[in-house]
Structure formats: C-alpha cells, structure tokens
Design a protein around this nucleic acid. Structure first.
Lengths: 224, 224
DNA sequence: GTTTCCATTAGACAATCGGGTAATGTTATA
DNA sequence: TATAACATTACCCGATTGTCTAATGGAAAC
C-alpha cells in the first residue's frame, strides 16, 4: 500500500528558525523527502503552499499573528489534497481537536524522533491519519458515539454503492464547488449536455434527488 | 519516543482461519512481535484478552455472532491500556466511526502490507492513533468542530459575517437536506414565497451564489 | 469480433431557482 | 412611541435544473 516511487515535497511553516533548520536537515537526510520551502509565518506559508502545491505541510500551531489553526482553515478553503501535519510542543486538548477538525491529517509533538517523523510524513502523504500517543486519547474521545451502534452490532445491509467514473468524479468536484452545469461544461471543455448527463448519472449513482444532496453527501463522506 | 526494548504481545481475533494464520506468520517474522493467541470468535477473544493482557489486539470487525465493535466495547469495560487495532476488509463509514468511538486505537484495512502492519502495531503499542488512508477522511470528518474555534483563532474582525436569524437557520437545515423551496415551505407551513425569501437572504448573508454553495459551506463549517 | 462501458452531443420539456420589487403584520429595542 | 428588524406573502422573468430519448465513437473485456 505504501509505495515510495517519487519524492514527497514538503513545506515547513514554523516561526523558530532553529527548529526550521533542524527539521529541514533531518528531513532532507531522507532521499525520498524534499523540503521545498520554509516559512516563518502563516501568511507566507499559505502563499507558498498555493504556489508550490506540496504533498505535505508541517504546520506549527504556535505561530504569532495568524496561528496554525487559522492557517489550516485557510489552506483547506482551497485544497483538500494537501496533507497537513500539525506540529506543536504542548498538548492542549482544545488545540488537538481544533487542529484535526479544521483539516489537519496528523498531529505530532515536536519532541518526536526525526526518523519517526520521516515515517509519519510518508504515511500521511499516503493519506494516513496519525496522532501522537500523548494526545491520541484526546482525539479519539472527541469522536462522538454513534447513536446507532446497536444497528451495527448486528450487521447492517451493505448497500452496494455504484462507483463513480473518473469523469463523473471530476464533475462532482465542480458541483461541490457550487458551479452550474454551464460552468462545469466550460471548465471541462465539453457541451452543457455532457455536463448535464454526468450530473444526472452522478445523482443516480449516489442515490440522491438533486445536486445539493449530492454535494452534501460528497462533503460529508469526504470524497472531494 | 518509539523504543522497542521488549516484545510486543499480540492477540488476533479473526474468524477466517486463513487470514489468522497469515497474520500470525507475517507478524511472528518480526522478532519484536509476539502473537500470543489467536481466536476465531469474539467470546473466546475476550476471554483470552482478559487472561493474557496483551499489548495489542487485532480485532476483525466482521465477526459472526458478536461482532468486532461489540467486542471492543466489552474489552474497554475492563481495560483501557490494551491497544486495539480494528481490522476490516471494507470501508463503511458508520463502522469506522463506531469502531473508533467504541475504543479502537487504530483502523486498518485488511489489504495492508504485512510489514506496514508490523510498523502500525509498533506505533499503536506506543499509543499512536493510526487510521488507514481510505477511511482517514471519514474519521477526521466525524470530529466535531470545536464551538470555540474562534477562541483559538483570533479572527472575527476580517469576516464580519452577518448572523442568520433563527428562521433562516431552520430553512438552512432543510436546504442542506436537499429539499426544494416548495418542500421547505411545506415543512415550515409557509408559502413558497416565504421560503424563497429566506433562501435568498441566506445566500446573501453567507456570501454565496447558490444553494449548493450554501449547503457545502454549512456542512464544512459544521453549522448544521 | 462482439459486447459492454464510457464520454460525448443533441433537443425538448416541466419544474425549479434566484433576483428583482413591494407590501403587510409582528416584535423588540431605543 | 417610533424605529428597526424580522417573517410573511405576492408577482414577474430569465436562467438553470433534471429527465427523457437517441445517437456516435472509442476503449476495454469477453
């Protein structure tokens, strides 16, 4: 599952220069990791991230002016593909939950072993959610008990979901962005008829009645 | 942080014998891992776990009779130290959330690379929370937005968002549910004109162009 | 080589949507 | 009391949506 055919590009956002340099050195010692930029504040960080589209962002939470959580929210407004590792030196509960619910994929304490951090980066680049032992319980506790656990305790009927095609998936992303059929068509350089056909197909496959339901379902299930 | 001075004891709970044997072989190939018991059902599994007090439990979720989630709940009644890795072959959303909220520390799909699984076990034994890429988004999405995220993000001045009225909030909920203006009107026992007026107002206040964007924004910001 | 799946295009149609403007009654708050 | 904010209703109109049927070409699977 975890393949490492090409380098993982990384941007570090961290206010302490010493930590920044330390991270870069430690990570660049790994041939498959490539620190493409370092930023000392969130504003620069967001700019660089939009420009360079890295695979992974190491985001310090304790930044001045705009803090890490705000930065994560900002990043998530535009991109959901970039993986974000929240870095911090302490373990305040609210911060853990806030970071993860804001869109961070992982949560590390700064005293992590550099080699371990490299491993985590590789994992997270593949989409893994990784949470430091010190705060893992906090994060897990914040997951609400499913109100219908009993439903699961005796097998729920699997509802054979029909998979979307690649093209439909593209259309869905635009749909979730709130674009009209006309706009989607323009974006994909096809006729409006095509866009409509795809949307129609998406609605049927997702078992929903209209594009709003499709968008909401897509967001809730994280398929964006 | 991750030290491996002594062996990690493991109990496997899995109904398919072939998978069980496969897991044991793969794991025992690692000198630091030690499979101390295998069980083909949850009842035996719980007994063995209580008796042997392993470091880590590999718990299949798709067990017959008493399924994995029930088993996890049972285990957690007595012990919180034992680390539980939920194993499954599919990726049903409810199951992911249910497993984690029931007390699992990690969630793996069965198609994981055996060596990777060994790594995960080492991590989880240290308390790490590890969630497979395929379902990581689902898990993270289920973490509720901290209501006081604004406390951590000294924002607010920039946005100056107009607050929705109670009525508009009601309408928004129906909108997110994918209902049409007509349906919303029926639900709230008002005329379609009223529903439209509210929707129009919602769109303006939320600074979006159409109901899809409003719905997506509402879901993403957790105001549903 | 045939069949199946997918992407593409088209026309037509009823239903719905979103934006105007405007009016009325209620309820707070100043 | 007066002013503001909100909920409510109404009409019009252009744009958009979702569904239908139907056809074509390419690619993959059998």
């Amino acid at each position: 599952m975890i393949t490492e055919e090409k380098q993982i590009s990384i941007i570090i956002v961290e206010d302490f220069k010493l930590t920044r340099v330390g991270l870069r050195c430690a990570l660049n010692a790994n041939p498959d990791l490539n620190v493409v930029a370092e930023c000392e504040n969130a504003v620069d960080g967001i700019k660089e991230i939009e420009k360079l589209q890295p695979d992974v962002v190491l985001m310090d939470l304790g930044l001045p002016v705009m803090n890490g959580i705000e930065a994560i929210l900002k990043i998530r407004e535009h991109s959901s593909d970039i993986k974000i590792i929240a870095l911090t030196s302490h373990d305040r509960e609210e911060e853990v939950v806030a970071a993860l619910s804001s869109g961070a994929n992982a949560y590390c304490l700064k005293d992590i072993d550099p080699n371990k951090l490299a491993d985590v980066i590789r994992d997270v680049a593949q989409g893994v959610c990784w949470i430091d032992p010190v705060v893992a319980n906090l994060a897990l506790k914040s997951i609400p008990k499913s109100e219908n656990i009993s439903m699961l305790t005796h097998q729920a009927p699997e509802q054979a979901r029909v998979p979307l095609t690649e093209r439909e998936f593209e259309v869905l992303k635009h749909l979730v962005a709130g674009k009209s059929n006309t706009e989607i068509a323009k974006e994909l350089i096809v006729s409006v008829h095509t866009a409509k056909a795809h949307v129609c197909s998406i609605l049927q496959k997702m078992c929903v009645n209209d594009r709003v339901q499709a968008a909401v379902k897509a967001v809730k299930e994280g398929i964006v």
